[in-house]
Write a protein that binds this DNA or RNA. Structure first.
Lengths: 229, 229
DNA sequence: TAGTGGTCTAGACCACGAA
DNA sequence: TCGTGGTCTAGACCACTAA
């Protein structure tokens, strides 16, 4: 039994008709859909309203309803793996540490846990197409990601997604600086090299799921951002 | 004559009722509004749909309609002046150059003009609370901002807003590097100091309104970003 | 002029939540 | 039980666009 609402049925019918069509292609008129489905016009409008809200269709009074062009979407919360994939590169990681540590004052506050709570610390050297790009330290509340250290995932965000806590919101801070001697060694750059530091607090809903510090080689990484309004 | 549509009148009435109310406060029920305005319920729903879409109200079936909590909004397209104001600091600028130049190949492509077009170049040293923070070079299509150089505004984006072409979309690229000797002199930092480079292409709708390169002192500027989804 | 989307009416039945 | 929002009907008139 796939009992479905009429406006949902109409919406999905139109979505199917329209997907793959070039922007500007005419969608069925509201009265066409009224005849086809034998419903009231308000019901058809409810279906089309949803598609217009999603950016699938555009309405032009007096002309009709048409397939909308692709919407520009601002940069979202992405992981290193996804960031590299978008550039057509393959991300790799070498785990340098995967351990439990006790959260100090600042880390505890950032992670929304009480100081002294055991926290997962995961340090990775990250590569893109085999070249060293950055060094990242991620901290996660152990209680919210049980067993993470037992089977380290290839992509943290994908793993969090599978657990239903993929970050939907991130508070990032970016600064430019000089690599410390340890960073320079790990990143394989000379002393005095420029690095891009990227600190993140990632939330899923209202819950902090990750606090991380990443140090990028200035000569091997550029950060791209699309911002709207 | 302020002939206004009924759903608009109801929407603004409810918006006025609700603004300043604590999140969770009950809004009038749909049937209350039907009685008060003497309209059909579909009209009331159209008004409330708009407020729900804006994030002003939330509906809970079986319970009612309530004032929504403040929405988290991702970082938008802001100018240096606005960026500093958000931190409670006062932005200042010292203009180092304000001139017409001829667009070369790359700049012309970025600005969507034909090579050889006269373009405005505006170089400023920027301060926050009196401290030097960055050096910025902005390029604008002279034809789209006539007279800009005759009366240099305090904030470029505010001026563009007044002309109806404030950027609504930005494509930013961030890198970390070492200050060149010239940059070091202007930014008042020693040789070898780290800088954050910020290149921007800002659009209003589909039109490129600004192409800029900004060099921030690594020790005097941190970039904050909020990202969603 | 014919067709389109925008607005609006005056009802109806339903599932759900709170009392 | 009563009030709420969710869904739906079968019309209507309007302004606008394109032919």
């Amino acid at each position: 039994m796939s009992r479905s609402l009429k406006h949902v049925e109409i919406r999905e019918y139109v979505r199917g008709l329209v997907e793959g069509s070039a922007p500007g292609t005419a969608a069925p008129s509201e009265r066409d859909l009224v005849d086809r489905f034998g419903v009231a016009r308000m019901t058809v409008r409810q279906a089309l309203d949803a598609l217009v809200g999603e950016g699938v269709l555009e309405r032009f009074p007096g002309r009709g309803t048409f397939v909308a062009g692709p919407r520009r979407t601002p940069t979202g919360v992405a992981s290193f793996t996804e960031d590299m994939a978008r550039r057509g590169m393959v991300a790799e990681a070498r785990t340098l540490a995967a351990e439990h540590v006790v959260a100090g004052e600042r880390l505890a506050r950032a992670l929304q846990v009480v100081p002294g709570t055991p926290v997962v610390h995961w340090r990775r050297l990250r590569m893109a197409d085999g070249r060293v790009v950055c060094l990242s330290d991620a901290y996660l509340d152990h209680g919210r990601i049980p067993g993470l250290l037992d089977a380290l995932p290839a992509s943290l965000y994908v793993e969090l997604g599978a657990r239903g806590t993929r970050p939907t919101w991130a508070e990032d801070v970016l600064t430019a600086g000089i690599a410390t001697p340890d960073e320079a060694t790990l990143l394989e750059v000379p002393g005095g090299a420029a690095v891009l530091r990227h600190n993140r607090r990632a939330l899923a809903g209202e819950v902090v799921v990750e606090v991380s510090r990443t140090v990028y080689r200035g000569d091997a990484y550029t950060m791209s951002l699309q911002l709207s309004s």
